[in-house]
């Protein structure tokens, strides 16, 4: 059974968002990491890059496949999780904590309303 924390928002493409003030932390869900299997490489966006909601801005590669990660929200990337370059398996072991991908300064907080709640996302993945 996948873990879907209730305090996060979710995109259909399996990214999660944790909002603190005007900054959002982005990662991929427990369900996504489970589907990918063992993550072996993560390519995060450059700090400072402006991304739009729905734009492919990171790549997560597992032992079986490589997938784009789509930004759930628009804004400027403030910080990336450098720990993933040495230990991409953090995405598997702690997808909502140490396995976060990047932090982004929101340029359009209203976009958060378009994202799913935990219960809506749970329904999508059949959890």
């Amino acid at each position: 059974m996948s873990n879907v924390p209730s305090d996060l928002k979710y995109a259909k493409s399996h990214e999660w968002v944790r909002v603190e003030g005007d900054v959002a932390t982005v990662g991929i869900s427990d369900h996504a990491q489970h589907e990918l299997t063992d993550v072996v490489f993560v390519e995060t966006p450059q700090a400072g890059r402006e991304v739009k909601a729905g734009e492919a801005c990171a790549v997560v590669e597992s032992v079986k496949t490589a997938s784009d990660v789509y930004s759930p929200v628009s804004g400027a990337v403030q910080e990336i999780n450098g720990a993933l370059s040495d230990n991409p398996a953090l995405v598997n072991s702690d997808p909502y904590g140490a396995g976060w991908f990047y932090k982004i300064k929101l340029s359009n907080p209203a976009e958060l309303e378009q994202l799913m709640t935990a219960s809506e996302y749970s329904k999508q993945i059949g959890a």
Binding site: V59, T65, A66
Partner: peptide, 14 residues
């Protein structure tokens, strides 16, 4: 005497 795999350009390894 050999293995064959057919790989698509996908991710860093591909």
């Amino acid at each position: 005497g050999f293995y064959e795999v057919t790989v698509k350009r996908d991710g860093k390894m591909g």
